[in-house]
Simulated assay, not measured.
Amino acid sequence: MTELTSPSQRFGARLQRPSSSASLQARVMEQETRTLAEAFERVAADGSVAAAAATVVAARRRFVSGTGKSFAYASLLAADLSAGLSNVSLVDGTLVRHVDVLADVRDTDVLVAVSLRRYRRETVALAGRFAAAGGAVVAVTDTTESPLIAVAGQAIVVPTASASYADSPTAVAAVVHLLATLTTASAKGARRRLAERDRLAHDLELYWED
C-alpha cells in the first residue's frame, strides 16, 4: 500500500503496456475476486465487522462520514443503516456539517468514518475530534497504517488491491454491506421500521410498479 499511491502512478505501472481488452478484463476480474475473498477471510477471522455492528447498535445517535471517493461508501452505509435504525446522519458537509456534529458530541454517539488512501484530512480530523469529545469512532479503512487507526476505537481494515489504476471498490462495498446487515439484524424495531417504510413508499408511489 505504500507504493503507487496515486491513480496516475498506478495507470503508468499497470495499464500503459499493450494489452487487449479481453486480457485486461481477465486480470481485473481475477484480482477483484482475490481481493474480495481476502477481505471476507480477514473480517471473519478478526471479528471487526461484528464488533463494529454491536457498537453502532448500542449508540443513541449514529453519524457516518467520508470525503472524496470515500463519500460514496459512507452514503451507501448511511442509506442502508437508516432503513432499519433511527438517528442515522450522513455527514455531508452541507446539511450535516462537521462543525455541527463536533459542537454536540455525546458519549452515546458513534461515528463511522470511511477513509481510503490517499486519506483526506477532513475525515481524519473529524474522527480525531469526535473521539476527543467522548464519542466512539469506528474506522473503515484499507491498511493498519491509515491515519484513522490512531484515533479510532475500532477499525475494519479492508484490502483494496487492484489490477486497475483505481484501488478496488469491490471489497469495501461488500464489507460496508455486511456491516449494515449485521447492524440492522440486531437492532430493535428494525423489522417494524422497514415495514413502515414499505407502506409509506407504496402510499407515496415512490417506485415504478407494473
Rank of each mutant, 00 (worst) to 15 (best):
D104P: 00
A132Y: 06
F63C: 02
F71T: 08
Y207N: 09
L116K: 11
T183L: 03
L182Y: 05
A78K: 02
R118T: 15
V124F: 03
A132C: 05
R27Q: 13
T160G: 11
A136M: 07
Q16T: 15
A113I: 03
Y165I: 06
V64M: 04
L76H: 15
Q31W: 11
T181D: 06
N87W: 00
S75E: 12
E30S: 14
A54T: 09
A139H: 03
T33E: 09
R118V: 15
L15G: 11
A195R: 13
D104L: 05
A163Q: 09
D109A: 04
G128N: 07
A131T: 14
R121D: 12
A13M: 05
A132D: 12
A50R: 15
A180Q: 06
D142T: 02
S186V: 09
V112T: 11
A13D: 08
A83L: 14
A59C: 01
D92A: 10
A103D: 11
T184Y: 08
A195Q: 10
E3P: 02
R34T: 11
A163D: 15
R106C: 04
L204R: 00
L77G: 07
D100C: 00
V172E: 04
T144V: 13
R121V: 15
L77M: 13
A163K: 07
A173W: 10
R118A: 14
L194M: 10
I149G: 07
V91W: 03
A44K: 11
F11T: 11
L77T: 09
V56I: 15
P159D: 09
Q25E: 13
S21Y: 12
S8I: 14
L206T: 04
V158Q: 02
V96A: 08
T183R: 03
A195H: 06
S21E: 09
G47D: 09
S70C: 15
A127D: 05
A133T: 08
L179H: 07
G189A: 00
L116H: 15
S86R: 00
G47K: 08
A139N: 04
S89V: 09
S164D: 15
S164R: 13
G47P: 09
H98G: 08
L204H: 00
R199V: 04
M1Q: 02
V57E: 08
A133I: 07
D92F: 10
D107N: 12
V105A: 06
L15W: 09
L76C: 11
D100E: 13
A150D: 14
S89H: 01
S89G: 01
A127M: 03
M1E: 02
V175A: 03
L77I: 13
L204Q: 06
A195Y: 00
D80H: 14
